[in-house]
Design a protein around this nucleic acid. Structure first.
Lengths: 212, 212
DNA sequence: CCAATTAGTCACCGGCCAGTGACATGTCAA
DNA sequence: TTGACATGTCACTGGCCGGTGACTAATTGG
């Protein structure tokens, strides 16, 4: 035999890709706790020195994840189709429920959001920025020339709904429970979707003024 | 002089109280990252050995915080008064906006919620349980004999709103920004409150069915 | 064939952490 | 007074971390 099965690769491109993939996996599976040079190197099966040589340390590695993230999200959400919505309420409904599914399915993005909440350092701020812009670009792409009804604060309403679903997804992944809902069951997720739909239609279906 | 100003107390009750207060402060100010035996002992100005002797280590200390937390929240929210609400919509409005103010003002509870999200270990699960039951008890206390309109899933709607406000409070404290909202300004918080009010009235003001 | 460069590994440093055993000192009762 | 106990402090271990210098080994260009 000429090459033992676990011989070093001696291929910088492949090794860099291995390290990036390992970093993504460690972060997605173990969270930002437990994310570090040692853990990534162990996962990638190489020496941590390579992380310093090829990425300049944790900082560069995190930036590399951020760079990958944009394309990753684009690909993951590309297959969004169907008949174009005919009203702003339907558009918001599709976007917000689509966000829920995408966010629930992507453990890595969840961990980045969590990291951002728990440790708002400039390092993770850039990573979170990549996540944010990727999602915003995706939402903007599905938008036609529909505009929200006059008199309602659509950005605030949408932010509220996105915040709610993000929080529920994070709680569901962490403890499975939030305010009496059992987010380990798909039944309660259906209740969540129905409640979100109720609110979207209630807010955008017609004008509802708020009297102080 | 007979007693130097920083002499040891030799008073177990006071020392325990000092340690508990230090633990609360460290957790509230520094987050669960940086929370540990060494940090608490430094903050309390005593040796960490006392934490092991009096509380049995981090676990017992966390339990002590949880025990304090219930009474702390009860006191902090006791002064909730005003005319009794005349409809479920108004009741929900008061409870949910009251939750927002209470949660925004209490850094310790925020950090516990965050800890629960990022590190769902059995230890912090008990602490989070104390937080959860305290808040639920508070919400139940303000309730009269009002019941939600028929045909709406009030628990899901309320959970959605609480989740939204909790997420916004956490994001506001961490980065100050969420989905285009600048949560460092009270102006945008007013928009958030208005949006929540819009949704509450839209959902509870009259029946709105969700057609599949 | 040989030297320079590149890919990869190893051993080590200092720092912070949780946890523990031994010690000093104050208090109180017999 | 003296001995037992409670209070508090110190010094240490072992482990994991991020980070770095020195090393080996394969490839490549001349």
């Amino acid at each position: 035999m000429t090459t033992p099965p676990d011989a070093p690769l001696r291929d910088r491109h492949r090794t860099e890709a291995l390290i990036r993939a390992a970093a993504r996996d460690v972060l997605a599976e173990g969270g930002f706790l437990g994310f570090g040079v040692n853990a990534v190197a162990r996962r990638a099966g190489c020496d941590k020195q390579l992380i310093y040589r090829y990425f300049g340390g944790l900082e560069g590695l995190v930036d590399a994840i951020g760079a990958d993230l944009a394309t990753w999200i684009e690909d993951s959400l590309a297959a969004e189709s169907g008949p174009p919505p005919t009203s702003y309420a339907l558009l918001a409904e599709r976007l917000i429920l689509g966000f829920l599914e995408a966010f629930r399915a992507n453990r890595l993005v969840q961990q980045i959001a969590l990291w951002e909440l728990a440790d708002p350092s400039p390092l993770v701020a850039r990573l979170a920025g990549a996540r944010s812009t990727a999602l915003i670009r995706w939402m903007a792409r599905t938008r036609g020339d529909l505009s929200p009804p006059a008199g309602v604060d659509a950005p605030a309403l949408n932010a509220l709904l996105i915040a709610a679903l993000q929080q529920l997804a994070l709680s569901g992944a962490a403890t499975g429970v939030f305010a009496g809902l059992d987010l380990r069951t798909e039944a309660d997720w259906s209740r969540v979707r129905a409640a979100a739909t109720t609110m979207i239609r209630g807010a955008y279906g017609e004008f509802r003024g708020v009297k102080p």
